[in-house]
Design a protein around this nucleic acid. Structure first.
Lengths: 241, 241
DNA sequence: CCTGTCATATTGTATGTCAATCAGGCAAAG
DNA sequence: CTTTGCCTGATTGACATACAATATGACAGG
């Protein structure tokens, strides 16, 4: 029996076994994903109190299920549970955001290096294709469309890097800075730089140059971080003092 | 109010507020840690079925608590939950172990770099002190004592690296390869190399040389991985085929 | 104004229940 | 004798409820 601790692989296998019942995601997963999306998407404000009852009503689930989902999000750092007071949407300080970006840079560098040295030709072709679409985007592309393309790029990169754990570690980090990414990506003129930076990643990958790909990924994240942190600092400074 | 999503900081603050009630860890945490330790320590064999009832009896807790703990461990990859069949202790394949070591190398490199460039003099002194103890260890030191010293070294390194997220990402990885580390660390002659490799990390840190520290950390993990993977391959090959 | 006490609300934990599903055994058909 | 189908027992998924522990806020008293 396949007992790898790989959730996605198990889900895939389950889908293979029961190809008809597509909707059959466990309720707990639905609540978890829904809540994660709601928080990452900003439908709850940072610091907002997420009471048990509120979430039960919202998702139509029992306390048991809601609480399990909240625990998961707590482990991811999206919410913060205080004993006997409940869950609160976590704040994101400038320091924390900087630390997350630092980590993201290291992880994506690893992914880039792995992809450059281990990806198959088919995977490289997919990445090439997505990069071509990214390059062809008009300057005034909306943030949604831009984020979607970038997500596809990273999905392929992570899938082909030969180390699924990288994606598993990165996911919770990205969910915490999702809003930040959305706002910073839409900064005027950022797209041009993005394309150039990702282009260097792509070029290193075409050369099978692992270290160069790692370095290019790190560089890209570092620049994105600079833009994002500027936005975050501008948001927080006038409010707090 | 302090609502950082930093579990340890919150725990610290709680400990400050209630300095007397040291034992007052939530029941859920006790079960979670106990189960994690039991699995990481090998008291359950890989593939073993961890039934709800069994765990309830073992920890004297209710299903609610046990299930929440199991979910957490599932997210960490220590156990693997199959719908309507329950939790099983996850296997660790050679590939997975290699991937975990790769990730660990990247994370510890980041920690080393951060420590070299950002740690305070007091933190450097603590690290220096621990390294001195490590160097003075006799060749035939038991694996327990060796692991303990190394753990202290990394605790200080991670605490002083200026990025608490690194420690949070590393912890679940380490718990999955704990047994592997224990066996590979006790390989004959490994201590000598360990001291030399960690010495290079220490030297780079004393020079405030971030990149060198990163590289030394990466190198150390890579060598440890080589030893550990050899052990794992030797364990699995004769059993499986 | 400060302090101590109490009532209320919320969470932490435990328990019982029902439905869904899986594993294994048993019997009948080929 | 093998295979197929069904049935039963066991286990988990989800829910509702109940009780204990604790934090919050109000209120009375100094």
């Amino acid at each position: 029996m396949d007992l790898r601790a790989d959730g996605q692989a198990l889900a895939d296998r389950a889908a293979m076994d029961h190809p008809l019942r597509v909707v059959a995601q466990p309720l707990r997963r639905q609540v978890e994903d829904g809540l994660r999306a709601a928080i990452a998407g900003g439908r709850f404000a940072p610091g907002e109190h997420l009471s048990d009852r509120l979430l039960c009503d919202l998702f139509g689930a029992s306390r048991t299920v809601v609480r399990e989902a909240v625990r998961l999000l707590e482990a991811e750092g999206l919410v913060c549970v205080l004993p006997h007071r409940g869950a609160f949407v976590a704040f994101l300080s400038v320091e924390e955001a900087a630390q997350i970006y630092e980590l993201r840079a290291a992880l994506e560098a690893l992914a880039g290096e792995g992809f450059a040295t281990r990806a198959s030709e088919a995977e490289r072709a997919m990445l090439r294709d997505i990069f071509k679409k990214l390059s062809a985007l008009p300057q005034d592309t909306g943030r949604e469309a831009l984020l979607a393309i970038k997500r596809r790029f990273y999905d392929v990169l992570l899938a082909g890097c030969g180390n699924p754990f990288v994606a598993r570690m990165l996911a919770p980090l990205l969910s915490r800075i999702l809003r930040l990414r959305a706002t910073s990506l839409s900064a005027p003129g950022r797209l041009r730089h993005t394309v150039a930076e990702v282009g260097r990643v792509m070029a290193a990958i075409e050369r099978r140059d692992g270290p160069a790909a790692a370095s290019a990924c790190r560089e890209h994240v570092a620049r994105a971080a600079k833009a994002a942190l500027a936005v975050l600092a501008a948001q927080q400074t006038p409010r707090r003092r």
